[in-house]
């Protein structure tokens, strides 16, 4: 276990909890998917787990230590957050964006040196974008930006990467490209928490799924156990079918299909 949340409760305004007694355990090398409707608390949970928000009740521990006992830079050396694809106000190069991952390793008055450049280039290499180092980040595609942000997380050298909807705005090819790299990095021991609106990607890549509804955990477990027709129908407030593949005794869920309301 490296990151653990126990009964985390959080409210932006008193009396209106956004998270209610949420618990999860993230192991080394695990890809954990957060699924649920818009507003179910996925993003708030991610912010609590990254240390940006402090839970009103409950506890989050990192390597057995209370997350809020870590200094900000110390915490950022362990946990990185990959935001949704964005466009910065200034046209930094891809390499400059990746270098920013070195921030928690440098003093307030420091700036990256030779070793940091090497680490950044190495990180770009491992997401297959070494040749993009000097391109302006504002001029590359959404899928490439997602990979650059992953590279920044690698340059940050953390154990846990939180990804906020990495599959949003990406075509099928780029979703696969990003998630294959995530799966490969997980195989090397990095842990991921991925919030997503794509249950099919969870079926393909997740080791563990947290299905959330109105701030609560509706179900948690392996994808085949949580992404079932009744649970999905409850979580998303619709009728859904799960399509299985393979012979009866070893069938594998492959796709989630919402049903049309009227035909």
């Amino acid at each position: 276990m490296i990151l653990e949340a126990r009964n985390v409760t959080f409210a932006y305004a008193a009396g209106v909890p956004v998270l209610r007694r949420v618990s999860l355990t993230l192991e080394r090398g695990m890809i954990l998917y957060l699924l649920g409707r818009n507003g179910c608390g996925k993003t708030t949970l991610m912010q609590c787990l990254s240390g940006g928000l402090r839970p009103n009740a409950g506890q989050i521990t990192l390597d057995g230590r209370d997350l809020h006992s870590y200094a900000p830079a110390e915490r950022a050396r362990q946990i990185g957050l990959i935001p949704q694809i964005h466009t910065p106000a200034f046209a930094y190069t891809v390499r400059e964006i990746v270098l920013m991952g070195r921030a928690p390793h440098l003093g307030l008055f420091g700036s990256p040196g030779k070793r940091d450049y090497l680490i950044a280039d190495e990180a770009l290499e491992s997401v297959g974008l070494a040749h993009y180092a000097h391109r302006p980040y504002t001029q590359i595609s959404g899928g490439e930006r997602q990979l650059v942000l992953i590279a920044r997380g690698l340059a940050q050298r953390c154990q846990v990467l939180l990804m906020d909807e990495p599959d949003a705005h990406l075509d099928l090819h780029n979703q696969q490209k990003v998630m294959e790299i995530v799966a490969r990095l997980a195989g090397q021991g990095l842990s991921f928490i991925v919030s997503s609106h794509a249950p099919n990607n969870a079926l393909a890549y997740a080791h563990w799924v947290l299905l959330m509804k109105t701030g609560r955990v509706l179900s948690a477990g392996a994808p085949a156990d949580t992404l079932t027709a009744p649970l999905l129908s409850d979580a998303y407030d619709l009728e859904a079918d799960v399509i299985y593949d393979g012979a009866d005794d070893q069938r594998v869920p492959r796709a989630v299909l919402p049903r049309r309301r009227t035909r």
Partner: peptide
């Protein structure tokens, strides 16, 4: 001059500065 490299991170917004281990409001 001393904090110049940190300006890169501040220009991405508070949320990212926090996840990169900074206290953006104070700086």
């Amino acid at each position: 001059w001393l904090v110049r490299w940190r300006l890169n991170i501040l220009s991405l917004g508070d949320a990212e500065a926090v996840t990169l281990g900074m206290n953006p409001n104070r700086l």
